[in-house]
Simulated scan of single mutants.
Amino acid sequence: MTYLNYSSDVLKEKDGYWTAKEIQQQPMSWRCALASLVEKKAAIDDFLNPILAIPNLRIIFTGAGTSAFVGESIAPAISAKLGKRAEAIATTDLVSNPHDYFQSDVPTLLVSFARSGNSPESVASVDYADASIKECYQLAITCNAEGELFKRCTGKNKLALLMPPETNDISFAMTSSFSSMMLSALYLFYPVADFKEQFQKSIVATESLISTHHQAIKNIACKIFERVIYLGSGIFKGLAREGALKLLELTDGVAVSSFDSPLGFRHGPKAIVNDKTLVMLFISNHPLTRKYDIELLNELKADSEVGEIAVVNAQVGDDLSASDCLVLQGMETVDDVFLLFPYIVCAQIYGFEHALAIGNTPDNPSSSGTINRVVQGVNIHAL
């Protein structure tokens, strides 16, 4: 078997087998996750519909690390689509400062994302919410049936949804777990009549990205940059944050990365740019947002200071030619939320290939062993 154009033997030698496999398997895992959700739709609707009908409902998307960035990547679009208060707050904030975030008298649906469901904050946020909010509902979207989060979210006012088993990533970095949980939340909370048709375009574009654009991404990843900046507007800012984390994790911090929005980047953070900087820019399909994204791209080009700009985009035309960017075919008219999937796979492949380029081991990237697959050493204190 080959994954990301490497044989299994080569990947095992480089200690990157599971990361490569889990990146490449994502389109297949998305199909499985979507089929499972469709099969469970009646039970899901029975749970969610009465909750979503509550007039002053507050929805909190939560998780730790990558799981938190699932919520950051989808909350703005879901809030706009549902016309409800939906926000992303990490478990690492909810647990340390529940008094700042939970509102006792506001009906709340806490949607928890977790790969293993065993991180201390994942479990504590569920318990703290139950103790802090008078009318609290819990939905867990997780990849591990044996995890504490999955076990906690059964019973009255609670529902646990399990992702396909292969999404419980064996590698250190979360890849297929992130995207599959994101898909599930969008299916539940982003009501568009042609969801399946638009998402099918995400699957096809991602498969094409892996097979067609992999070498172009690898060519960039083999160049050594001191700094890598991920930029995206709106929902793509959360995705940019996840891209930056993937690079930090897979390179064991050797590649220094950060994230921002294109507009926010101008307000000081652009000082980080020099000739040893790579900027990866996720371009929106929305006509207004796209104007701001392109303006920042043109400004970076005019400055002539950045080492390289990697532009990921779904539309070509007068504002952006095919020669200027990596173009995702067939995605020209989809809602931005459906671009999240091929965009993050692009960032995952870059992080994987750059880790190999600098001689790091993607499956077990922490040379010191001080960073673990499931966070350790957190003591949970009583409210």
Rank of each mutant, 00 (worst) to 15 (best):
T2P: 09
V10Y: 09
L11M: 01
Q25D: 12
Q26N: 09
P27H: 06
S29W: 13
W30C: 03
W30A: 05
C32P: 11
C32F: 15
A33F: 09
E39R: 13
F47H: 06
I51P: 04
I51N: 02
L57A: 08
R58M: 02
R58N: 10
G65Y: 06
F69I: 07
V70H: 06
S73W: 06
I74H: 07
V95W: 00
Q103M: 15
D105P: 10
D105E: 15
V106D: 10
L109P: 09
V126Q: 13
I133E: 04
Y137T: 02
Q138A: 09
T142V: 03
C153K: 02
T154M: 09
G155E: 00
A160R: 04
L162A: 07
L162H: 03
P165Y: 06
D169Y: 04
I170G: 09
S179W: 00
L183W: 01
L188S: 03
V192C: 04
D194N: 13
D194P: 11
K196N: 13
K201V: 08
E207K: 02
I210Y: 02
T212K: 10
Q215A: 12
A221M: 00
F225S: 07
R227L: 12
R227F: 15
Y230M: 06
S233P: 00
F236T: 09
F236W: 07
F236M: 10
A240S: 14
L247G: 06
L247P: 05
D252C: 02
D260T: 05
S261L: 06
L263G: 12
F265N: 05
R266N: 05
I272V: 10
K276T: 14
L278K: 01
S284H: 02
N285V: 03
V306W: 06
E308P: 00
V311R: 03
G317Y: 11
G317Q: 08
L328H: 12
G330S: 00
M331A: 00
F338D: 00
L340V: 08
Y343C: 07
A347P: 08
Y350N: 11
Y350L: 14
I358M: 00
G359A: 04
G359D: 01
G359H: 04
P362L: 05
G369E: 01
I371M: 08
Q376Y: 05
N379E: 13
H381L: 13
A382C: 11
